[in-house]
Design a protein around this nucleic acid. Structure first.
Lengths: 144, 144
DNA sequence: ATATTAAAAGAGTTAAAGGTCTTTTATTAT
DNA sequence: ATAATAAAAGACCTTTAACTCTTTTAATAT
């Protein structure tokens, strides 16, 4: 469904959103630990999100990553599109480039509904929606 | 969502199902053309499905592939599981191995519904369900 | 000013998916 | 029997995703 990079990106954004409440930057090391993910890989992904102005970064002591007030309203769809592109939004699940209402693949109609649900889930969820549940350990961003 | 191999496998099975009505074997060359897909790659995929007894194959003149009466009831879920394994059925969309009701990821509940819809679509669709529409060119298995 | 901290940049590596090619084996029509 | 046909088998190549490593740049605390 999503690339590994995209899954990490979403999880990282949930984590940064939660910590941004406290008004502090969170470092890559802490993020990688919080997700149980490879640190250099997470660094790459966040670098990318930073370039796309979806997260604020700061170098030097007490540096790290943080979300501005408006960035906390970033949706999962924003992240997915930024990382994986928009194929999830509109592509045929059997891989047909030209699949559409006029010349549909066998599962076009059924899959359309599923795609709609996926888009709805992604576009209605914001990265700060679960800050509290994450803080209270009712929801998790890593295994174990 | 599905691997490229899996997409080809599904499309190939739809095509073989349709041609199996006529009681004849369909060759790899014709299948590859019918899907506009690379012939040697399709050959490998079908070899695999043949080993798993999801399709009958015959060598020599007039040989090719065909579905038995019971094989025509193969569901898309059967194909997906055979080719991509069962990760689609039960894995967390954020990649957490241990995501479950007890320790869920932030989108666990919402994604559960989507996964259910996907499974429902896959398990209720049989490869021969669209034979007629495919014959009448109301549905398509390739681009252009 | 300097040392330290931490992200940015970018080259490099590894593994898996996607796809190709060649040889072998089985079948059947003549 | 033999030639022709078509899948099986398996080695091989290519591309992309996933991940790592090293060096550079920027910020800050002393």
């Amino acid at each position: 469904m999503f690339s590994q990079s995209c899954k990490y990106a979403i999880r990282a954004m949930f984590l940064i959103a939660q910590r941004s409440n406290e008004g502090k930057f969170i470092g890559i090391k802490e993020i990688a630990e919080g997700l149980d993910a490879p640190q250099p890989f997470i660094a790459k992904i966040l670098q990318d999100l930073s370039k796309k102005t979806m997260v604020i970064s700061a170098k030097g002591p007490n540096g790290g990553f943080m979300l501005s007030e408006s960035q906390r309203h970033t949706t999962l769809l924003d992240i997915v599109v930024a990382v994986d592109g928009n194929k999830i939004i509109n592509s045929c699940c059997l891989g047909l480039r030209d699949c559409n209402e006029k010349s549909p693949c066998p599962v076009h109609d059924e899959y359309k509904l599923i795609r709609k649900k996926i888009n709805s889930m992604l576009s209605t969820t914001q990265v700060s929606d679960y800050n509290d549940e994450l803080s209270m350990s009712k929801l998790f961003l890593k295994d174990k």
